[in-house]
Amino acid sequence: MNRSRPTYSDLKGAAGGAFREAVSKGGLTSLQAFAYTYEHLEIFIDGDDPWLQLLALTSTFMVAVEADVNIWEDELFAEDVLGVLRYVYAEWIFESVDKRFDSLLDVGLREDVEVVRSKYV
């Protein structure tokens, strides 16, 4: 992430890298690795920029989709992170997402939002 404002591609790469590192080097379970990934991107998730919140959450939850993580193994954690996801996603509709992505680096965002929305929201 060499720009001052990360793109979806940047955050998706960071999420995937954090997850893989947590599993391969840290020996964590997939749920623990998902939690590690969430914490890794939490600076954006908890930040005050709604666009970066959307990008970071979508990146993080796409890791869970791709790794088939059962986040319900820890019900309190699941309720917490799904609450954040639902809150942020409620603020966005696809037209807003379409208007915001002005870079080729955001390719795939709309599709990934739909995947995450259909699975978790």
Results as ranks from 00 to 15, higher is better:
1 M>R: 03
3 R>H: 04
8 Y>H: 06
8 Y>A: 07
10 D>V: 07
10 D>I: 07
11 L>V: 13
14 A>C: 06
16 G>M: 02
16 G>K: 01
18 A>E: 13
18 A>Q: 07
18 A>D: 13
18 A>W: 09
18 A>K: 01
19 F>M: 08
24 S>N: 12
25 K>M: 12
28 L>G: 05
29 T>H: 05
30 S>C: 01
31 L>P: 06
33 A>H: 08
34 F>I: 14
34 F>V: 13
35 A>V: 14
35 A>G: 11
36 Y>G: 03
36 Y>I: 12
38 Y>C: 07
42 E>V: 04
42 E>C: 00
43 I>D: 14
44 F>V: 11
44 F>T: 11
45 I>H: 08
46 D>K: 06
47 G>A: 10
47 G>H: 11
47 G>P: 01
47 G>M: 07
47 G>Q: 10
48 D>Q: 01
49 D>S: 05
49 D>I: 05
50 P>V: 13
50 P>M: 05
51 W>K: 00
53 Q>I: 11
54 L>F: 10
55 L>P: 02
57 L>G: 09
60 T>G: 07
61 F>S: 08
63 V>I: 13
63 V>P: 01
63 V>C: 05
66 E>K: 05
67 A>F: 04
68 D>E: 14
68 D>P: 00
70 N>S: 11
70 N>P: 00
70 N>D: 15
72 W>M: 12
72 W>C: 08
73 E>Y: 10
76 L>T: 15
78 A>D: 09
80 D>E: 13
80 D>L: 00
81 V>Y: 03
81 V>M: 01
83 G>N: 09
85 L>W: 04
85 L>Q: 07
85 L>E: 08
86 R>V: 12
88 V>S: 06
88 V>I: 15
89 Y>W: 07
90 A>P: 00
90 A>Y: 06
91 E>I: 00
91 E>C: 00
91 E>L: 01
93 I>S: 07
93 I>Y: 08
94 F>I: 15
98 D>F: 10
98 D>K: 02
101 F>A: 09
102 D>W: 01
102 D>F: 01
103 S>W: 05
104 L>P: 02
105 L>Y: 12
105 L>S: 14
108 G>H: 04
108 G>E: 10
110 R>L: 13
112 D>Y: 06
112 D>P: 00
114 E>R: 02
115 V>N: 03
117 R>W: 10
118 S>V: 12
119 K>G: 06
120 Y>H: 05
